[in-house]
Design a protein around this nucleic acid. Sequence first.
DNA 1: ACCTAAGCGAGACGGTACGTCCGGTCTTCGA
DNA 2: TCGAAGACCGGACGTACCGTCTCGCTTAGGT
Lengths: 214, 214, 214, 214
Amino acid sequence: MAAQKSAQSAPSVQSAPDSTRRSERSRRAIYDAALALVAEVGYPRTTIEGIAARAGVGKQTIYRWWPSKADVLMEAFLDLAEQAAQEAGQEPYVIPDTGDLEADLKAVLRLTVDQLKDPRFAAPSRALAAEGLVNEQLGREYVAKLLEPSLQLYVDRLRSAQEAGQVRPDLDPRIALELFVSPLAQRWLQHTGPISYEYTDTLVDYALHGLAPR
Amino acid sequence: MAAQKSAQSAPSVQSAPDSTRRSERSRRAIYDAALALVAEVGYPRTTIEGIAARAGVGKQTIYRWWPSKADVLMEAFLDLAEQAAQEAGQEPYVIPDTGDLEADLKAVLRLTVDQLKDPRFAAPSRALAAEGLVNEQLGREYVAKLLEPSLQLYVDRLRSAQEAGQVRPDLDPRIALELFVSPLAQRWLQHTGPISYEYTDTLVDYALHGLAPR
Amino acid sequence: MAAQKSAQSAPSVQSAPDSTRRSERSRRAIYDAALALVAEVGYPRTTIEGIAARAGVGKQTIYRWWPSKADVLMEAFLDLAEQAAQEAGQEPYVIPDTGDLEADLKAVLRLTVDQLKDPRFAAPSRALAAEGLVNEQLGREYVAKLLEPSLQLYVDRLRSAQEAGQVRPDLDPRIALELFVSPLAQRWLQHTGPISYEYTDTLVDYALHGLAPR
Amino acid sequence: MAAQKSAQSAPSVQSAPDSTRRSERSRRAIYDAALALVAEVGYPRTTIEGIAARAGVGKQTIYRWWPSKADVLMEAFLDLAEQAAQEAGQEPYVIPDTGDLEADLKAVLRLTVDQLKDPRFAAPSRALAAEGLVNEQLGREYVAKLLEPSLQLYVDRLRSAQEAGQVRPDLDPRIALELFVSPLAQRWLQHTGPISYEYTDTLVDYALHGLAPR
DNA sequence: ACCTAAGCGAGACGGTACGTCCGGTCTTCGA
DNA sequence: TCGAAGACCGGACGTACCGTCTCGCTTAGGT
């Protein structure tokens, strides 16, 4: 008779925040501040306090929704990627399938080169990768949310080529794609060498036709 | 034979400490403490204060000789590698040249797999790589001191194979080696896939003979 | 007789809440929670959030009706005192007037001693006194609502004694009462000494007959 | 043989700071800042961060040496009192003994009135008293270090008067002094009435000769 | 008997201060 | 004169509350 709570479906482990009441305004401001700071002062000198101050937000608002600086940046970056995709209108991030595997791979890798050189993406992406090396949990998230979806596109394209008889029938596409993707990734991440269209073209050439003489 | 620092006549800039009076005891203790801590609690939670305390050393003794946590770990790791090499006696970590390029590459990559799985090396090495992504200066040092020497061995072996007509005459060895080295590196660093002898064997196979059908 | 607020025609400043629709239930719960918390964890660790949570009440419900933690406690305490008075039925807390001033004062001070030792009253009362020292506005309210009414009773009794020729004709009763009331108050508030019937009896003795030999 | 710590005389519960290496400079700056802030913004709005900032000191330097804000202020105030005593050259804080008890008490109480009205002393002293009401441990310290020494002077003076036959032979001086000291204290602390020479003179008069007619 | 406007529980929000940890510098003392 | 010890200033950490602000949801009165 008195106020009776029908707590039926309310497991609510421990004061989980109510995401329906979350401030969209604050979230956007935090994303923007996080990305801006990482770009300006680098990841290690980006602090939660700094993000909060720049976003005009209380620190608790960050701690309420994210467990760590790395997770903030991860979501911010995912959001950025999503936005960029939407801005680009149609979906540009698919590997073309003109029937000519070599040309298609070279084309998409040239696009990737452009993207890796875009400073908007470079700083946060490298920061996340770095943190992911050392923070296993974040690393797996990075791989699952950012890396694997892209790699899957290569798998698909290679399978299509396989059906068309353009690559070995026994090929493992998940390994095969690493022959041209991993070198580019390593050069970019570890500064082990310059990145250019010529370089990626060469990678595709070597990978498809092999290092041995024909 | 190895880089030998003639520290005698290197006063360096500003109030250089007199390295002739440096305590060998302290240096060893600091190396050991740094490696142990990185292995135990991970790189981010390894602190200079912690290293100093564990090594039974004043903080200043660390700051006097190294500019940063990363540099301590870098030297500690280089020292570890050197020690390991000496312990192993000969086996000077070169790539065998039996005349069969494919067999030689598979063999050396299998050794690399073993090394990457050695927990003594894994933690500090990954930590240094991570820090190197974000700290450009350290990154270059990491590449120059740890990565490039190894890669150069592949360059040499590939050139030898080139002279023997086992690889394309126009091949750029510095790029070619990345086809099998970078995939392994990426899987290890970013946990993007499992590492095994079978995997590296496959990499060498694909790289040498190409993805396209013969 | 007591201060009766004719709240009807008092729109007061800025968005005054409509006190006719106030929840009696919440008020009681807040009083209880406030007194309980002060008794359990002490005044400084009693928080508005804590009171609200314990009372099962929104924070805003507290802020709507009280300007500060101290005011909540003040009202809660006044309510407690009022309730206690009503429970006690009559015994309207006046000083007896048997004609024997010394006996009457000793009797009423013994009652006061009992009251000061009642733990229900001690914690909140001391807390309010403390806050009053530092918060001038609250201090005046504390004095006006809690202290002065009691002191006035002594003034009245002393005047009656004056008319009966039992105290000096030129006596200022407002000062005179302090000779036995203030020492007791100070011992209680500042723990400067033990409190007992013997002590208050002595105070009355000294105050009435003086320290000097007769 | 190896580094063997002769921990003989090193009980050292838990990383107790080494007070011989304490910075006198910092201590002074902290005292000054604490007193200034209490005077300017009041005790509740005086924060440890504020003190540290104003003193140009790291927060840790405060936490290293004092357990709480109240303790900082306590020491600062004791230091101030000590300094004031030294500045005054000879020791002024003794109750004169001219043989005329009444005159001596009136004189020293007038001095006390002056002191209570000195704003340098008033703010911190009242703040400490308030905190002491609620924080039992601090309260005892306040009483022991600030109050009791002064009260002891009255005890001594009263005993001297007792030997001279100017007060009752059976008098308990510790209680007797409260007849004129406590009223003054209460008026000052709780704003229960004005403070003046006339008032303290009256108190002494009443206390010595009693409220009853002679 | 409905309608509407308030009080209500809840709790997210921008803030401030907390007390702790560590970075990098500086000072003291013993070997 | 180096090294251990550790105090120092500074600044970020993650937490606790402040007082304000929205959200539905009761819950009166007024019509």
